[in-house]
């Protein structure tokens, strides 16, 4: 199956780092840059949807524009034996000329129209 290469430039590109202690909300920022000359729709997905609050969790990025996303890790009891296996995925597609129903647009998208990038979460403790 042929797959489109991710058009957006992610910063950071591979890892989302969260600094402990995790007694309060910890925010990591993810920058999405659209270097193309077309509008790009994006959607953020995660393997642990209840642990994170993501703003915005979807949207449209104009040609040449950037969007900064806040990924807020909710407070939890950190267990040093449990290294995080959480992952994020940024799914994107080129925006159609008109968007009337975002949900339908994603649902009707063909697999070869979708692009995605995956990021791994890294938990850092101050003592480490």
């Amino acid at each position: 199956m042929s797959k489109l290469e991710q058009v957006l430039i992610l910063d950071p590109p591979n890892d989302l780092r969260f600094k402990g202690p995790f007694t309060d909300v910890v925010t990591a920022t993810l920058k999405l840059k659209n270097p193309s000359d077309r509008r790009v729709c994006f959607k953020v997905k995660t393997t642990a949807p209840r642990r994170y609050c993501v703003r915005p969790n979807s949207g449209v990025i104009d040609a040449g524009a950037s969007v900064t996303i806040s990924v807020m890790l909710q407070p939890f009891d950190y267990d040093p034996n449990e290294k995080s296996k959480h992952k994020f995925m940024v799914q994107t597609m080129y925006a159609p000329p008109t968007i009337t129903d975002t949900e339908a647009m994603w649902k009707d998208a063909k697999p070869d129209e979708l692009m995605d990038s995956k990021l791994r979460c890294v938990f850092e403790l101050p003592s480490e």
């Binding site: 997905k45 995660t46 994170y52 609050c53 703003r55 909710q74 992952k87």
Partner: peptide, 14 residues
Amino acid sequence: ALSEDEFYDAVSES
């Protein structure tokens, strides 16, 4: 591998 994970839509409200 990374591709074997199940991904869900991220929520914007906690």
